[in-house]
Simulated scan of single mutants.
Amino acid sequence: MTDADLRSEQETPVRYRTLRAGQRAQVWVGGPDLAEPELVLETSETLVEAPNWSADGGSLFLNGHGRLWRLDLEGSNPGLVPVPHAGLPEINNDHVLSPDGGQVYLSAADGHIYRGALIGGEVERVTSEDGVWHFLHGISPDGTRLAYVRLTDFGQPGRLAVMEPFGPTTLLDTGDGHLDGPEWSPDGDWLYVNTESFTTVPGHAQLARLPDGGGPLERLVSSETVDWFPHLSPDGRHATSISFPAGTLGHPADLDVEVKVVSTDDWATPRQTYRLVGGQGTLNVNSWAPDGRRFAFVGYPLG
């Protein structure tokens, strides 16, 4: 079986994930100054993924069982509350909030990106190209553009695409290797990604950035692990990412992984490292709190 075949098996969209027998989903909060993360939710009923932090700092938004959920971090309602979106197909773990915190953009199981109010209601489809998968990861700081991974064939590498909602798409050249996780720096000058373009080793993703609008890839760190999903804090001082064991293809679930926190002036030296069972769903989207002191991630312990 080829590397492309393996990636296709791991990344082809399927019906929403569910917990295995005896498995739990744990939502944690960590940070640059938190040696021990804080557990804010544990459930054996719903496999939740990919937290976004609300602009007011009071809630997390996660996908689970094909829909979006709100998890309030303050007050008397600590459980998951479904967000009542109408006309939305099942969603996956690629979703981002608008800079003003009022809307959410979501990648759905039909391959398209949708937009809706964060409180719920009708949604509208913002992509028009059928026969293409749009895996959303970033929104520009001014809220006018979306960055996503464009795929037409799951046996082929993902490509970096930038679009205006309801507008045309621009493809940026990032080399031949698979690319994922594109999102803007807070100042809008850079797009941060993980890419396999630096190596011929199958699946060996590394963290990188390129100028907004396109340009050469700049490798941020060289590592033996397979590194995915760089997310910068709102002040740009820190970043998170997730490291898979060497030899991992794609970003599969239920592996021994590490969630890392670094200063953006030293990507090679983690300030914090959280080890857990996870991978897919743990840290797919930017999950920093607006104060830049905390971020959320998900583990999936077994037994």
Rank of each mutant, 00 (worst) to 15 (best):
P186Q: 09
V162H: 02
L276S: 03
V27W: 04
E129M: 00
W184V: 00
P165W: 12
D254G: 06
S222F: 06
R70P: 13
W53C: 02
L171W: 03
P51L: 06
A246T: 15
L47V: 03
R159M: 08
V126G: 06
T18L: 08
R209F: 14
T195R: 12
G279T: 11
Q156G: 01
L80G: 02
L179I: 08
A239L: 12
L88K: 13
F198P: 12
L41Y: 09
G155M: 00
H95M: 03
D56H: 03
Q206N: 05
P216A: 07
E164K: 08
D56A: 07
G278I: 01
G131L: 05
S140V: 02
G281Q: 08
T282C: 01
A147W: 00
G213N: 12
D72P: 03
R7G: 00
A239M: 13
F244C: 11
G22R: 09
T127R: 11
Y274P: 08
V261Q: 09
E9L: 09
S197I: 09
F297R: 00
D212C: 12
L19M: 05
S185N: 12
L171Y: 01
A50R: 02
G215S: 05
V123D: 01
I91L: 06
L172Q: 11
L97D: 00
L106M: 14
